[in-house]
Design a protein around this nucleic acid. Structure first.
Lengths: 128, 128
DNA sequence: GCACGTCACTTGCAAAAGACAAGTTACAAG
DNA sequence: CTTGTAACTTGTCTTTTGCAAGTGACGTGC
């Protein structure tokens, strides 16, 4: 028997109508924004994401890339068919998370001792 | 041959020296920033956090309040001894997460249909 | 003066998510 | 032919989360 669905008015995927909560429903975990950060740093391939210093587990990376694509934040482009090899690019929607990352970077710089940042943050390549 | 192992000096609790990753090590989960948001909305008591529309599980709330306090983002102040009753306030350090929340709010407003925000975001009461 | 409700938690257990290791597929290099 | 690389998938184990229930010290109504 199905539940009578006791939480009607919010879209199924969001916990509330609060924009902050909804954003967290998309990127609110330990890894998603790390991948987005890497895209801002000019990385595009699976292996490049894996070789970041945070050492994301491979199954998590694969899953997050799918979710980011499904959420429309990134686009997957195949550059060869067999074996299938793809590159990932931020969409406009994804690139507009820039201010969030910048705000985090500034907070971290101010309050966490020992962090360093690499000024590679050129405007990201966007593919819509 | 092995690389000289470039992983020595990170503080145990941080995955890397990247400021973004380090911030995510503190607030990078589904609930922590929801609590911080509530503090920005002027909430101070356990019951107020619980009654937010996201319905945070009570054990998670208790644990997050402890972690936020340990991280120096909030301060717990007892206003009565028996039974012990406390209020929670942002510290300067915690209040400086404002730009992160604002950036998320703007992104959500722009890209997630149906979110609404409540302009209660008066400057939060700070206790250091 | 005692059942009843509230507040701020804690505890126990099942379910979901994450971490780690190993396997797979297709090709390319030596 | 053997080894290597890229991009995954699968399996197993551990950790974190979610939900329900319980606890202790009150305060309120009758």
């Amino acid at each position: 028997m199905k539940k009578p669905t006791v939480k009607p008015s919010y879209p199924d995927s969001y916990r509330s109508t609060c924009p902050v909560a909804s954003v967290l429903d998309i990127v609110g975990d330990k890894w998603t924004l790390i991948v987005v950060r890497d895209l801002f740093l000019g990385k595009h391939r699976y292996g490049e994401f894996q070789s970041s210093p945070e050492a994301i587990p491979t199954n998590i990376l694969a899953e997050r890339l799918k979710r980011l694509e499904a959420a429309g934040l990134i686009k997957k482009e195949f550059y060869q068919d067999n074996p299938p090899r793809a590159e990932y690019f931020l969409t406009t929607r994804g690139a507009d998370l820039g201010p969030v990352l910048r705000a985090m970077r500034e907070w971290g710089k101010q309050y966490i001792p020992g962090v360093v940042y690499l000024e590679k943050i050129a405007p990201p390549e966007i593919r819509d």
